[in-house]
């Protein structure tokens, strides 16, 4: 049985189609990533699955229960962590945890083993008001509270947005540990580097999935050879690259541009072309594509298709 199964799910706000006929399934014990830019429909999807919002059409089942009819049962079985910190800021760390344990009719001791690794890190601050914690600690507390009733499925909506890189890494290590304990985790993130840590990822844009597969397969399926290009006149480089007739695509990517060629193009010719245009110390290297490259490619296809 799939932990989450969704069929033809739709939700719109006025004219904006936030979730557009989505169908997918998350296996039990899977770490499933929803990757996409802001406004792609990630939060809407999570809110529907967490029984906070009714879908306009289609069905969704979580742990075998329907999100519309059996929402009460589902609420006992899931942990939900919204993108925005939403615990009681005027209660202490300890009080928040106890409160959420009691509303699920359980105690902190009963499921302490599950949260031990995470909670240990914030335990020194347990008498502190939750509102006075740092961003990373808030996330750890929120995760602890979402786990305190030993949920079967965990929904994490952009848990690492606004968290420093070290805390982000720590957070993902915790998720991998939780996965080993058999909890199904659905996580959304705008960070592509986090995607590779998931078992499977769904690339979402405009409420539609562009592709669903393991990160490895998605990367392997990248059709072209990818080159990274760098020169001393970076701000002019993008225009020059795009004016070169054999360049198929070029995207800004941190400090370099990622470029693919049509059949006739080659790095040697490009280097000569750029030198003619006054670029010096041109550097063209062959690189392995990342999830982000795949997303850019698929996203562009999605747009052209319309």
């Amino acid at each position: 049985m799939a932990a989450v199964s969704v069929e033809n799910l739709c939700k719109s706000y006025g004219k904006v189609q936030a979730v557009n006929k989505l169908s997918f399934a998350v296996e039990e014990g899977e770490l499933y990533g929803i990757i996409g830019p802001d406004g792609a429909g990630k939060t809407t999807l999570f809110r529907i699955l967490a029984t906070l919002m009714l879908p306009d059409g289609g069905t969704a089942r979580v742990a075998g229960y329907d999100v519309v009819n059996d929402y009460r049962t589902i609420r006992n079985l899931i942990g939900y962590m919204p993108g925005r910190f939403s615990l009681y800021q005027d209660l202490t760390v300890e009080e928040n945890l106890n409160f959420f344990a009691t509303v699920f009719s359980t105690t902190v001791d009963e499921n302490y083993s599950l949260i031990e690794d995470i909670y240990k890190q914030i335990e020194p601050f347990k008498k502190r008001l939750a509102g006075k914690l740092s961003g990373g600690m808030k996330q750890k507390l929120a995760l602890s509270c979402a786990l305190i009733h030993k949920p079967e499925v965990l929904f994490l909506d952009e848990p690492t947005t606004g968290v420093d890189p070290v805390s982000r890494k720590e957070f993902w290590n915790m998720l991998l540990k939780l996965k080993r304990q058999g909890i199904t985790i659905m996580v959304s993130t705008p960070y592509m580097d986090e995607a590779t840590l998931c078992d499977r990822i769904a690339l979402i844009q405009n409420g539609e999935f562009l592709e669903v597969d393991t990160p490895r397969h998605i990367i392997d399926r990248y059709p072209d050879v990818l080159w990274s290009v760098k020169s001393d006149k970076m701000h002019r480089l993008l225009d020059d690259l795009r004016s070169y007739p054999h360049v198929k695509s070029s995207f800004s990517f941190g400090e370099t541009f990622h470029v693919t060629f049509y059949g006739q193009g080659s790095p040697g010719e490009l280097e000569a072309y750029l030198s003619d245009r006054g670029h010096q110390s041109v550097e063209i290297r062959k690189i392995a594509p990342s999830v982000e490259d795949c997303f850019m490619l698929l996203g562009r296809k999605g747009k052209n298709g319309k």
């Binding site: 906070l52 009460r72 925005r84 910190f85 009681y88 509270c145």
Partner: peptide, 13 residues
């Protein structure tokens, strides 16, 4: 406003 009502709504309360 603080979003805490969301967190309450996903509990069985």
């Amino acid at each position: 406003e603080s979003g805490t009502i969301e967190q309450i709504n996903v509990t069985p309360v």
